[in-house]
Simulated assay, not measured.
Amino acid sequence: MSLFRKIFGSNNPDSEAEKEFSKFSPDINAPLDEQFIYNFKKNGGKFLYCENTAEIKEQFENILEENDWFESDVLCYESEFFSLLDENKLNYVAATNPKFLLANCENLIADEGSILFSSKQIKQNKPNELPSNIIIKANTSQLIASKSDGLSVIKKKYIKDYPTNITTIKYFEKAEEEDFTQYGSSAKNLYLLLLEDL
């Protein structure tokens, strides 16, 4: 049984999974998935665990309904999502004022709870040029420990057509009191649809 099922599959508040995963005391020796979940949620991200592609579709439609984004403009560069967007009457062809970005990502960075992107997902857009709402579809196999591991994965994955514009998005809600670590970053309302593939 995967960790995600242990954490999110139980309705019992005294379950073993909740005892193992404390939101108040992250363990640096914890598995990557626990580290990522803790840091991602601490940064303000919204996490939706999915066991199969049917659940991805269902959760995507729930997000559209929750935010009233049906029949809206969407920024999306990846053809694998076009049929999903067509089914929900979302315009991605000539989107002038997109409500959200729908994309994959390169990796999920556990030690800081961030999402690693490249030009393969966001072209040459800087994070502050992207819509303030983002929906990311990722797989559990994309979890890695740190940014340097992410750069190594990108280097191995794209031997010839190396992507540009490699960046991370870390803050998913506006901080009440910003400190120097958030300087130059733009907070995004981010939903992560995480598909179990291990």
Rank of each mutant, 00 (worst) to 15 (best):
K42S: 13
G45R: 02
F47E: 03
F47L: 15
L48R: 02
L48Q: 03
Y49A: 11
E51G: 01
N52E: 03
N52A: 01
N52G: 03
N52C: 07
T53I: 08
I56F: 03
K57W: 01
E58F: 14
Q59I: 06
F60R: 06
E61K: 15
E61L: 07
I63A: 07
L64W: 09
L64K: 09
E65C: 01
E66N: 09
E66C: 02
E66W: 00
D68M: 10
F70R: 14
F70Q: 02
E71V: 03
S72M: 00
D73H: 12
D73E: 15
V74I: 15
L75I: 15
C76R: 12
E78K: 06
S83D: 13
L84Y: 14
L84I: 13
L85W: 15
N88E: 01
K89E: 11
K89V: 01
N91Y: 15
Y92G: 03
A94N: 12
T96A: 04
T96H: 11
N97S: 14
N97Y: 10
N97A: 10
N97T: 13
F100H: 09
L101K: 11
C105P: 04
E112I: 11
E112R: 08
S114N: 04
I115G: 04
I115A: 02
I115Q: 04
L116A: 05
L116N: 05
F117M: 03
F117E: 05
S118N: 08
S119F: 10
K120R: 14
K120F: 11
Q121K: 11
I122F: 08
I122G: 07
I122T: 14
